[in-house]
């Protein structure tokens, strides 16, 4: 009950005084308010350049021939732009194993991410807002799973997969990622959903909403930022995973990480596809990030309860 009373009790003090917010503003908001000032902007640009430099290096390396790359650093293109070539990408596309591994990565990553987000969102809603016996114990169990290291499950699960006949398949890899991604995903979303004011859900209930309607039309829109963060995090994790792929994916189902790794082992043979392959494996998560970026809207809760 105290939550209910508290939202109200806090209110009068919290009501901002327009135009006079400055004196007590937090460090973060002061930084934000200075964003306009030149010095800070310059510093930010500098940091961004530092971050981007290796990416740029990788990108340019992927556009130079292996001979050039071993003879000089990527910055040599600044004086000799004629070095740029698409040959690496051409041989990447010619390398059937690598192209297949790209699609394997997509086939592993997309279902894993979608399943994790969907299941976790539903479970998180139940853990946060539905009353059922044993709910809190179950949630404690989920939290407990967070600290179980992935490695302890490798052998038993490999055996189970063997029994089920899915060892080495993409399905096996996806299931493993989903199983290991869910505890954290549920934990993250439950805490976010639980912070949505109870009144909002009750208002929706009074407005005639059933649980699923409330979930879809109130919780999901409000949970957007958390779900977007989770989706990106999960996508990156699975996309970049090597360990699970090494253990559970056989050669024809191997993702790019594993393909790159085997190319590296036979260094020299296929050196031309390494930098272009690496860049390709890096650029997709970036695209996903930019696609979800607009959901990271700050302050979506403003104006809900007050």
């Amino acid at each position: 009950m105290s939550t209910r009373e508290d939202t109200a009790a806090v209110d009068p003090a919290a009501a901002p005084d327009p135009g006079q917010g400055a004196p007590q503003s937090s460090l973060a908001s002061r930084i934000v308010s200075r964003l306009g000032s030149g010095l800070l902007q310059a510093v930010l640009v500098l940091i961004a350049v530092f971050w981007l430099m290796p990416t740029l290096g990788l990108f340019i390396s992927s556009l130079r021939s292996p001979q050039d790359n071993s003879a000089s650093g990527w910055w040599a293109v600044l004086t000799e732009p004629s070095q740029l070539t698409l040959e690496n990408y051409a041989s990447l596309l010619d390398n059937e194993g690598f192209v297949a591994s790209f699609f394997n990565t997509v086939l592993i990553t997309v279902p894993s991410t979608v399943l994790i987000v969907v299941i976790a969102a539903l479970a998180a809603y139940a853990f946060a807002w539905l009353e059922f016996p044993g709910r809190d114990w179950l949630f404690l169990g989920v939290v407990g799973l967070l600290v179980v290291p992935l490695q302890v499950a490798l052998v038993p699960i490999a055996q189970i997969y063997g029994g089920l006949g899915i060892y080495g398949s993409i399905l096996g890899v996806v299931l493993f990622h989903v199983g290991y991604g869910l505890p954290f995903a549920i934990f993250l979303l439950r805490n976010f959903f639980a912070a949505i004011p109870r009144d909002l859900l009750e208002a929706a209930r009074m407005d005639g909403g059933r649980e699923f309607t409330i979930f879809r039309r109130v919780i999901l829109p409000l949970g957007g930022p958390a779900i977007a963060s989770l989706a990106i995090f999960q996508f990156l994790w699975v996309w970049n995973d090597l360990l699970v792929a090494l253990v559970f994916a056989d050669a024809q189902n191997q993702p790019m990480t594993k393909a790159l790794q085997s190319e590296m082992r036979q260094f020299g043979a296929n050196i031309d596809v390494i930098s272009s392959g690496a860049f390709l494996s890096m650029v997709v998560p970036l695209l996903v990030f930019f696609a979800f970026q607009r959901y990271f809207v700050q302050g979506v809760m403003a104006g809900a309860v007050k």
Binding site: D199, L200, A203, A304
Partner: peptide, 20 residues
Amino acid sequence: TPARDRDVAMVFQSYALYPH
């Protein structure tokens, strides 16, 4: 009877407006 079928409307102390 669940809340949605009671056909009563509530005004919350916090207003509980849907922010989105």
